[in-house]
Simulated scan of single mutants.
Amino acid sequence: MIDPFGRKVSYLRVSVTDRCDLRCVYCMAEDMTFLPKAEVLTLEELDRLCGAFIGMGVEKIRLTGGEPLVRKNVISLFRSLGSRIGAEGANGGLKELTVTTNGTQLVKMADDLFAAGVRRINVSLDTLDPAKFAAITRWGKIEPTLDGIFAAKAAGLQIKINSVALKDVNEHEYDHMLAWCGEHGLDLCLIETMPLGDISGDRTDQYLPLSVVRSRLRQNWTLEETDYSTGGPARYYTVKETGRRIGFITPMTHNFCESCNRVRLTCTGTLYMCLGQDDAADLRRPLRDPGVDDAALREAILEAISRKPKGHDFVIDRRRKAPAVARHMSVTGG
């Protein structure tokens, strides 16, 4: 699949649910209204769609949410997709299956994920301070997430910690987090907050440029250039003192769209060609139409890819009260 700007689409992010057991302040409103069950694709429908994308050249699939691991029997989808890893077809087949999670379910699911073929996971963790964790997540407790991280490590999974940089909240914790990740053999990825969805707050109060964070970290750490990439938008450095990596995802201060290789499928079957644009394709309709075969489904996907835009236009500004995109991050899956 080649988009209008010559970029090969090889990475599919799939939101398997819009539901979550936390309410992070940059992701959701506190009082969320979730989708009715009839609008949400079954796991079998998600599997069929993913299979179509794999057949068309997708090499990496990341399951996201909401919180993907709270969806009932979601491990069956992991097993089905994992069985396709290394099963080469005309386009090379699936090479990697990953997941982004808040970690709360990992104690009971880490071994199953590894058995299903998952080898790397991202865990969202914005602070190591229990009180701040509760404030950021609105009602979460840090212990289940930390226990989940260590359970995943024991299961053999490689772990990257995702942390959203929040001004005046966790901006002075990153020296500690970098040391903690180094101690436990984890990579760290910092993310600028993005203007997605009505969160009942002013995003200008949250926004912290990662150029500032990187400059502060360099006062105490040696960040060495590296060409390491996971196929996503992060720019990575090796931390000389720990031997681990730190990544920076900067949709606000550096538009990384020129190398974008991904599209996002929601749990309703809506395909977003860009995280920061509203244009989308409805794949649920052809998926549930008994008269539409897999060939027609692939045509619908190709038509959507032909509309993939050059990039997003994120802006965080006090003069612009509305979010750049109305849907919440939990709907698109990050």
Rank of each mutant, 00 (worst) to 15 (best):
V70P: 04
R285T: 12
Y207F: 15
R84W: 00
L69G: 01
A281C: 08
A38G: 13
L12D: 07
A296V: 01
P290T: 08
C20A: 08
V123M: 08
G185R: 09
L157T: 11
R79F: 01
K141E: 15
E171L: 03
C260I: 11
L297C: 04
E192K: 06
T332Y: 00
F133S: 00
K308H: 07
L297T: 00
T250C: 06
F256K: 03
L22Y: 12
L81I: 08
V58E: 07
D313C: 12
G140I: 03
V263Q: 04
S211A: 15
P68M: 10
A29M: 11
S124G: 13
E183K: 15
G334P: 02
D3S: 10
E299F: 03
R119L: 12
S15N: 02
N255R: 14
E225V: 10
M56W: 10
D279A: 13
M273T: 15
L69Y: 05
D47E: 12
S83Y: 08
P286N: 11
A326Y: 03
P4W: 10
W221C: 11
L49Q: 04
R298Y: 07
I85C: 10
D289C: 14
F5T: 01
V70T: 01
I246R: 06
L43R: 09
S163M: 11
R62D: 09
D168N: 15
S211T: 15
D168R: 13
R235L: 14
I246F: 06
E258F: 14
P4K: 12
N91R: 15
V9E: 00
N170T: 08
A324G: 06
V16G: 02
T266C: 01
G232K: 03
P286I: 07
R298F: 07
P195M: 08
V40D: 00
P290D: 03
I305V: 14
T17G: 12
D227F: 05
F248Q: 05
T250E: 11
A234Y: 03
E303F: 07
L287R: 01
W139K: 13
E299W: 00
A324S: 11
A115N: 08
N261C: 12
D147Y: 10
I136W: 02
G247N: 09
C257S: 09
R319N: 10
R235P: 10
D313M: 03
Q158L: 14
H172D: 15
L196V: 09
R19K: 15
L297K: 03
R7H: 06
V213S: 06
Q277P: 09
A52L: 15
A296E: 05
K141F: 06
R264P: 04
N170I: 08
D289T: 11
S124L: 10
G333W: 00
E173T: 02
G247F: 03
A152Q: 07
R218A: 11
Y237K: 02
F314Y: 08
R62I: 05
S229I: 04
A87S: 09
A154V: 05
V315P: 00
N102M: 06
T230D: 04
L186R: 05
E258C: 15
I199M: 14
A151W: 02
M1C: 14
D282A: 15
A304W: 06
M32R: 07
R307W: 04
M273E: 06
R120L: 14
V123E: 07
P290R: 13
F133M: 00
L302R: 15
D289A: 13
G55W: 05
E30G: 14
G311S: 06
G247H: 11
L302H: 14
T222P: 01
R307D: 01
M32W: 04
L106I: 13
